[in-house]
């Protein structure tokens, strides 16, 4: 028996954030576990640091005081400063060992920490009284939880054993078997509907949407509860046909609890820069409140499922 437990707890995954007091990722007050690794590559990605499954070094130049400790401790001498004091990192050779981040006083941070499911559950359980009083619980997000379905399954099983309400936030782009296995341990799927037109879906996210929608239908047929999460990006998917298709999709299913409109926010930009990547939608601004209300109304006109801003 002991041996089996050891084997069970051997599964780990790289986690980049465990965010307590999440009130926008499912019902009540929740803790959201952000896993690294994603199957998609969305232009508007809010969490660009989550795409790679490996730990990554993040640099916030504002926080750098130019003390040079990173230059001193890096085993591969990848840090340097220009004469103007600009902090450079040779990212190609960085293994994400994190030595520099440990010495740094705030500018360098290693994004991603290897954690076992038990460790995560221990952290999540800290807010149990808040879940109990608010109908909240744990949400697994990412990245994408289905990037590592075996680990996610173990995590949600343990969460259920601990009596937690569990949500999974996913793009749904995975083999059906992986989704199906989660059903008994997940109370609510926060299912991304990024684009209803498959060609556009591929253009914006790198993959077509047939598998995603097929999984959603099968999930619904199995009686699983879902919330459709719809990022709306001005100039990309703020089209009436898309809004109509979202409503029609919700109408065609039986267990959709809610449709969430997630208006574009440019918060991914600074994080892109921090990991040394270019941001595809640079310059795109927050949509205005009235515009968001119009989007919501447009979807709501064609469905009985409640549409809300997330």
């Amino acid at each position: 028996m002991k041996e089996r437990i050891d084997i069970m707890s051997e599964l780990t995954h790289i986690i980049f954030n465990i965010q307590r007091f999440s009130v926008n990722d499912g019902p009540g007050i929740r803790t959201t576990v952000f896993m690294k690794g994603c199957m998609l590559n969305c232009l508007w990605c809010h969490n660009p640091e989550s795409k790679s499954p490996r730990p990554q070094l993040m640099l916030t130049p504002r926080q750098c005081i130019g003390c040079g400790e990173c230059v001193r401790v890096c085993p591969k001498a990848l840090h340097s400063f220009t004469e103007d004091g600009v902090h450079l990192i040779d990212r190609g050779s960085c293994t994400g060992c994190g030595t520099c981040a440990q010495e740094c006083v705030g500018a360098l941070e290693l994004c991603g920490k290897e954690m076992a499911a038990d460790e995560i559950i221990k952290e999540v359980m800290k807010d149990l009284p808040f879940y109990k009083n608010s109908g909240g619980g744990m949400t697994v997000s990412g990245g994408d939880p289905l990037f590592d379905p075996a680990f996610t399954l173990e995590l949600v099983k343990k969460a259920k054993e601990a009596g937690l309400h569990v949500c999974i936030e996913t793009s749904g782009f995975s083999k059906w078997e992986n989704v199906e296995a989660l059903i008994p341990c997940v109370d609510l799927f926060l299912w991304d509907v990024k684009e209803t037109d498959s060609a556009r879906h591929k253009e914006y996210t790198g993959v077509p949407n047939e598998l995603i929608l097929d999984n959603l239908r099968r999930l619904d047929a199995a009686g699983a509860k879902t919330v459709l999460r719809c990022p709306v990006i001005p100039g990309y998917n703020d089209r009436s046909e898309h809004f109509a298709a979202i409503a029609a999709l919700a109408e065609s299913l039986s267990h959709v609890q809610e449709i969430n409109v997630e208006p574009y926010h440019p918060l991914g930009q600074s994080k892109s820069e921090a990991i040394g990547k270019e941001y595809a939608l640079a310059g795109l601004a927050f949509p205005k409140e009235e515009v968001v209300k119009e989007w919501i109304a447009e979807i709501q006109n064609n469905t009985r499922v409640p549409v809300k801003k997330a």
Binding site: V23, G28, I29, P129, F130, N133, S134
Partner: peptide, 14 residues
């Protein structure tokens, strides 16, 4: 209201 109610309730339980 529901979130503050939950926060308040937990506050007093603690």
């Amino acid at each position: 209201v529901p979130v503050i109610e939950a926060v308040l309730k937990t506050f007093i339980e603690k």
